[in-house]
Design a protein around this nucleic acid. Structure first.
Lengths: 221, 221
DNA sequence: TCCCTGCGGAACGGAATGTTCCGCTCTGAT
DNA sequence: ATCAGAGCGGAACATTCCGTTCCGCAGGGA
């Protein structure tokens, strides 16, 4: 399957190069979203380029995966910063989650983490994203509409749960995820009696994907 | 890693054979739960047996996977039937979900489906399990505690979401899943105003894993 | 006209993995 | 005591897969 980017880049050699840049990145996102373990050749094929075009840009598969994952992380941070502009703490949090789920950022970032060695900068960005998320949860708590026993790291569970929803049709997948998230948001609202069971997720408990990656207890997934 | 089954089977050759039966099945469950694409040799290693012990029992990898998946399906049906004994529709449904999540049945069944060709009997059992689940949802609806816009196939989303929760420590994984499920159950309770967004999951929409398996649009996952 | 960037795609080498097979052990019956 | 063979361990095999390299070419820009 070949994918054509009708980008508005200048014609000529430079234009073609720029178009290939985008095509490769887009193709990689799609391919690795479908299968995190996909061969790198599948990316080249879907982008409509040869292997050389790929290896001219990235040192290897790891490099491409890192780039993809880092982009997703940055997007996550961008959404969190955008949500901070919402004056209402609850809608800020809810909207943030909806946008993250809709943009499929979490699937990519999380399912790819662990297949390469993260850079120091990525770790910093991950930390920053955690801070932003914590801020969103704090504000939502202050507003009173978020039930008191929900903690920041519950967001990780929520995102992971939504990312797991998947049917063959991507559009339908988005709809079903949105629905599932609505269920979760309803559960996160404050008008509930029974407290959540078990010890709440501890800070850093869900960060294991970002660790050294060689002592990774989970090979699959 | 070697696993010893201290089963109370009779000693001697027959006993050893029976013990190996169980060891292989247990090892396979653990290994494929960690990584659905794990090599079959990993199963033999964890069971503490050689390849021959494996191939004496199963015609091939597919056969083992089928067996594992079918067992999970049967367990699912068992839990559903047990839940039917609960007189209260809501606690029947909630307890059913909790037990299914706790026993990790869904992870195995769902993550393995699609890696082999399902048998006709499995399809029948899948259908039966769907009927039982529909009955649970119907009863919960009749009781009034389940919000009206939740449909049977939402259960599939819930189970899939919970199965996606996973940290290195299995015990902790169970706790976090239980917590996540509690959030979802709270969201499924009837005292909520906003209806769930998007078209509800259609019957059979989540059954694609059980289909012919060769035209499977999802290679990974 | 000519250089050289960027590229296509085949070829390569190594790793992973499902399956087979040879020979041994030790049980249980004769 | 003997022995046949069930059951098994584990190495070897064949094959597939995949990341990476490399050779040769096309065609823009000076």
């Amino acid at each position: 399957m070949v994918r054509q980017i009708e980008g508005n880049a200048p014609p000529g050699r430079a234009g073609r190069t720029a178009r290939n840049d985008a095509a490769i990145l887009d193709a990689a996102r799609e391919v690795f979203l479908e299968d995190p373990k996909a061969p790198i050749a599948a990316v080249a094929e879907r982008a409509g380029v040869g292997m050389s075009a790929l290896y001219r840009r990235y040192a290897g598969k790891d490099d491409l995966l890192r780039r993809l994952c880092h982009d997703g992380l940055r997007r996550f941070i961008g959404e969190a910063e955008a949500a901070a502009a919402d004056l209402d703490g609850w809608t800020a949090l809810a909207g943030f989650l909806e946008r993250v789920v809709a943009s499929d950022v979490h699937s990519l970032t999380v399912r790819l983490a662990g297949t390469f060695t993260p850079t120091a900068e990525m770790r910093q960005d991950a930390e920053r994203s955690a801070e932003l998320a914590a801020g969103l949860v704090e504000r939502a708590h202050a507003g009173g509409r978020l039930r008191a026993d929900v903690v920041v790291d519950d967001l990780g569970l929520v995102l992971e749960g939504c990312a797991a929803i998947r049917v063959p049709d991507p559009v339908r997948t988005g709809e079903l995820r949105r629905r599932h998230l609505a269920l979760l948001l309803a559960g996160m609202a404050s008008d509930h009696a029974a407290p959540l069971p078990g010890p709440a997720p501890r800070p850093g408990e869900l960060d294991w994907r970002w660790r050294s990656h060689r002592a990774d207890p989970h090979e699959g997934l």
